[in-house]
Write a protein that binds this DNA or RNA. Sequence first.
DNA 1: AAATGACGGTTACGTATGTAACTAACCTTG
DNA 2: CAAGGTTAGTTACATACGTAACCGTCATTT
Lengths: 143, 143
Amino acid sequence: MTKLDLEQFLPYRLNRLSAAISREFQSVYGPHHDLTTPEWRVLATLGQFGESSAKEIGQHSSMHKTKVSRAVRALEMRRWLKRRESEEDRREEILTLTAQGRRAYKDIVPKALAFEQRILRDLGSEAPFLLAALTRLEDVLHG
Amino acid sequence: MTKLDLEQFLPYRLNRLSAAISREFQSVYGPHHDLTTPEWRVLATLGQFGESSAKEIGQHSSMHKTKVSRAVRALEMRRWLKRRESEEDRREEILTLTAQGRRAYKDIVPKALAFEQRILRDLGSEAPFLLAALTRLEDVLHG
DNA sequence: AAATGACGGTTACGTATGTAACTAACCTTG
DNA sequence: CAAGGTTAGTTACATACGTAACCGTCATTT
């Protein structure tokens, strides 16, 4: 039997890296705005696409609909977004950022990009390989 | 303001990849043994290092001590490991796999390695770049 | 050797999350 | 246009998790 070294095992490594980078990134927006990850994703999706339904947000951000539902409610409480009933389909609600929400978005986005840039810069010449490899991996893992 | 595309954003991508690969890997050992991820990690660590304390397992597998504690109890219920009080330090417990636990370990390891190999093979010539890039990323993210 | 603090491990509690059940609205098919 | 099935979104429930408090043991200081 070949040996298995857990610390070198791909799923384990990806899980660790994902946790580490999420933790660090949280320290980018956390202190200023105290957002959870799902809330950040809803904010980012709405900032990027403008109006969206909860369902669309879930598709763009790979989040379960209950997660979206709760994050939307939290952002609504904070008055960062508002809901509006859709004209065509009264089951769905159109979500849009408020002025306050857009302000937060515009505050966070440059920090997020700078955070990503710092990591890519630290990776140096390896960065393009990483990005390409991640894309391949996404393909291999059936999307 | 530069645009931010969530789906291309590094923390998001890593999180998604980690979730996807974990889900697929779970389908490797899940059906046969019905293990949670923490349980699998404890099993893998004990299988790899032989006797360990809970603390050591936590260090090797990057798990919080409460997570380790619960996974250990679950594996103990299953009679896959047993505890023994340490001679030198009666606070700590030495954990070892039972014959049954070792059998499960030896059953899963080849499946795990095959799973990893399949992915690396699918990555083709990109595989070494990915592994190197992950190592760099681990360094950059403060270990 | 008594006292204080550090440490391994467990547990109580609050929070986050997914599954499943639900509501209201939509869309078929008869 | 009534009935059955589907869909967007919410909520009840069970489970997983980390923080903090805790217990017993070890180590250090006096």
